[in-house]
Nucleic acid binder design. Structure first.
Length: 758
DNA sequence: AGGGCGCGATTTTTT
DNA sequence: ATCGCGCCCT
């Protein structure tokens, strides 16, 4: 049978090579917008068309979204067979394997997945139990150390033997970190719980310790693909290697990545893996394909990106190119304040919507830190532009959601110590910290699970009846685990636990929001039992509570693509924008110490990562790219003044829209007397003109209450000087200033500081 | 057990 | 500014 290979026609030469080279190790270096996902999905489709069984293909991604996208696109080519492909995130696919094999490593197959909060809570508990000084032992720091140890295959034993780590801990005055790590590992195991790192580490352990299982999966996964390879950590690569690197292996491994888009080094990702991959598979005729044609952006944008990235030290040589024509130059907004930046971005969006007929959904505002979103939200509302902010607290991290999930977790796995601690006395039922501590201690002393401790611990009769009240919520639900579906149990627990009433009692605005979340969790569970498809089908093909919990443990907000169709402007951090594209992109807050972040700018590595982040940001744009910065912005409650970002200077001026720059330059002022002196010289962005109106000493300036400002008044503004209020309209004052080039300003009273003169 | 106050730090984030 | 914390007092 000659398989249909017409899908190959839509690929360029390099892409096609990367798709049809199905034997032996392949490294695909894929620049932004170069059709990476296309290559990956077509490659999988091609494998299947060439006779591979779908279930022999393992395709690993980082996000559920990427996995879903990939599956959908494979299905378009090969049909329903696509659902049998093992395509998913590292964590979800490994969890799926562990659900089957966990007993080989001393875990129950219904193990709980601890999220980051659970890990932190347990570490906090251990710091307490080990009588360590919590001023010296910071929970976050310890968790980081443990996480990074696991990601580097360092077990508690190896940790103790590692002089470097132990010395670091001693230097940081936390010499018992290894002890915490060891205790943490034991307690997770005792609770039948794996944290996110464990889903990887325990799989590695399994493959390492059990020849039979290793052989089984080596034979099963004849084709292995890894997306976003630059984001993998050592542990992930170790597992991949374990699966494909062995005697007589066909080594059908294909990794796809872009070193220039590595922006997660801060959480353990290492582009060293790309270099190691080349090295590790060199003698097996590794083939390297570079996808350099960019199908996303115009030349101005692509060339600017190329220039910027040359400032980085180490990189795989490549130069992306585009045949989409020169396109528009890159816009630049120089604002005096963050508020003005917000306004000018909103103005430009209005302009683009009118002139270029852009839809809201084709526009994105990107920033380095989530805190920057506020001003943009403000102006989007003011201009009536629909928008959506991504990031922040995810649905599943909300307290009211975690509370109910906590109960459900105890129902499914009563050994789950973290969930138990969370809910045993919430809503309050008179079981205090002292009692909870006693239970934990009893559990540890007697070597029994926390649940057995709850039931057996000898206590006063008053406490006993309170504990029994709690047991009476859990036990009946447990008895129904095999017969009732997830929703039936959840609805019952929501009532009996008192959680539902607790939240409904609160009539504050936030309280109503919590009720809403609580209910939408319940309806989500209902949807889970009624709907056919679930995100990662195959873990458990049933509607049980256990199955539900497994499904949501690895979900994030991003996966709730409810409003994805809606026509709104997107506001998100640059990190969150990775992998996305928009017709028009605004990269905002381009100031030293913000982007690049002050947290990263003292080391060359940190700065390089910030630059890659900038590279990612600008390559999100298809046609319109606008960069912006403010001379002054509110940060941490005070005004701060920073130089324009060095990254701006790294874009050749020929790509920048000077017309726009000049016409908007009228209010490009330096800081007003206060703030650090402008020390940095080079670079055409350096602000030279000081447009501050002479004769005003900020010390004498006393802003008047904004509600006293009325039309006809003469007011003083720190930057613009004296002006006359023409009229006020919806909180916006139209003021005519005398001393600036662009005299008519619309000023929002909410933000403005104006002093009434007459 | 729980509320309140004062202090300190402040990026990015998937699973 | 704001949030989270830890501690102390009721």
């Amino acid at each position: 049978m000659t398989p249909s290979t017409s899908y190959l026609d839509s690929l360029n030469d390099v892409q096609r090579q990367a798709v049809v080279t199905t034997d032996g190790p392949v490294l695909v270096v894929a620049g932004p917008g170069s059709g990476k996902t296309r290559v990956l999905t077509f490659r999988i489709a091609h494998l299947i068309e060439q006779g591979a069984a779908p279930w022999e293909v393992l395709a690993l991604t980082f996000t559920n979204k990427a996995a879903r996208e990939m599956k959908e696109r494979i299905e378009k080519v090969v049909g329903p067979r696509a659902s049998k492909v093992w395509a998913g995130t590292f964590h979800s696919l490994f969890a799926r394997i562990l659900r089957v094999e966990a007993n080989h490593i001393g875990y129950p197959t219904n193990f709980t997945i601890y999220d980051t909060d659970d890990s932190k809570s347990l570490i906090g508990q251990l710091i307490k139990e080990l009588h360590l000084n919590k001023d010296l032992y910071n929970v976050n720091t310890v968790r980081q150390r443990i996480s990074s140890a696991k990601s580097n295959l360092v077990t508690p034993k190896l940790y103790a033997l590692n002089e470097e780590l132990m010395t670091q801990d001693r230097m940081a005055k936390m010499p018992a970190t290894q002890k915490i790590y060891a205790a943490y590992t034991a307690r997770c195991k005792k609770a039948g719980a794996m944290d996110f790192d464990d889903l990887l580490y325990r799989l590695y352990e399994l493959l390492q310790s059990n020849e039979e299982v290793l052989k089984k999966y080596r034979e099963k996964f004849r084709y292995v693909l890894v997306d976003e390879f630059q984001d993998t950590n050592h542990l992930q690569y170790a597992i991949v290697r374990k699966l494909v690197q062995y005697e007589n292996s066909p080594r059908n491994i294909c990794v796809v990545g872009d070193d220039a888009q590595s922006i997660y080094a801060f959480r353990g990702a290492t582009i060293q893996n790309i270099l190691d991959f080349e090295h590790d598979f060199q003698k097996f005729h590794i083939q390297v394909f570079k996808l350099e044609q960019n199908y996303r952006s115009t030349e101005q944008i692509v060339q600017a990106a190329n220039e910027v990235i040359t400032y980085n030290r180490r990189q795989i040589q490549k130069r992306i190119w585009s045949d989409k024509g020169s396109g528009q130059k890159i816009g630049l907004i120089k604002a005096t304040t963050d508020a003005e930046e917000g306004k000018r971005v909103a103005d430009t969006i209005m302009e683009q919507k009118n002139r270029d007929h852009l839809h809201n959904r084709e526009i994105a505002i990107l920033y380095r830190t989530n805190a920057q979103s506020r001003v943009f939200e403000e102006y989007m509302r003011r201009y009536n532009i629909p928008y959506r902010v991504y990031g922040g607290l995810s649905f599943y991290q909300r307290k009211e959601v975690k509370d109910l999930i906590g109960y459900l977790r105890v129902v499914v796995n009563p050994q789950d110590e973290e969930a138990l601690r969370r809910v045993i006395n919430f809503p309050k039922r008179g079981i205090g910290d002292t009692t909870v501590d006693k239970i934990l201690q009893f559990s540890n002393d007697q070597g029994i699970s926390v649940w057995e401790a709850v039931r057996q611990i000898p206590v006063t009769s008053g406490t006993r009846s309170k504990i029994n009240a709690f047991v009476a919520i859990i036990e009946p639900a447990r008895r129904q685990l095999d017969t009732a579906n997830a929703f039936e149990i959840a609805a019952q627990v929501a009532k009996q636990s008192g959680l539902e009433d607790f939240y409904k009692k609160d009539n504050s605005i936030e309280g109503l929001g919590r009720v809403e979340n609580f209910e939408s969790l319940l309806s989500g569970i209902q949807a889970f039992v009624t709907e056919e498809s679930v995100i990662d089908a195959g873990t458990l093909p049933d509607k049980s509570l256990a199955s539900y919990l497994q499904n949501i443990a690895l979900l994030t907000d991003f996966d709730q693509n409810d409003a994805e169709q809606a026509d709104h402007v997107t506001l998100m951090s640059v990190h969150a924008a990775k992998g996305l594209e928009f017709k028009s992109v605004f990269v905002t807050g381009l100031e030293e110490k913000l982007f690049p972040s002050f947290m990263s700018m003292d080391t060359p590595e940190g700065l390089d990562e910030e630059r890659r982040l900038f590279y990612v940001a600008i390559t999100r744009a298809e046609r319109h790219l606008t960069l912006s910065f403010a001379n002054a912005r509110y940060r941490y409650g005070k005004m701060s003044y920073n130089e324009p970002s060095r990254f701006l200077n790294e874009i050749p001026t020929q790509h920048l829209d000077h017309a726009a720059t000049l016409s908007n330059n009228t209010i490009n002022t330096g800081p007003v007397n206060t703030g650090p002196p402008a020390a940095r010289v080079s670079g055409f962005f350096r602000t030279t003109a000081n447009a501050t109106v002479p004769g005003i000493d900020p010390k004498d300036f006393k802003p008047s209450p904004n509600d006293q400002i009325k039309p006809g008044m003469v007011v003083l503004h720190l930057k613009f000087g004296k002006g006359k209020v023409i009229h006020i309209d919806g909180g916006i004052a139209h003021i005519h200033f005398n001393a600036v080039d662009n005299p008519d300003k619309k000023i929002m009273l909410k933000f403005a500081k104006l002093q009434i003169l007459e």
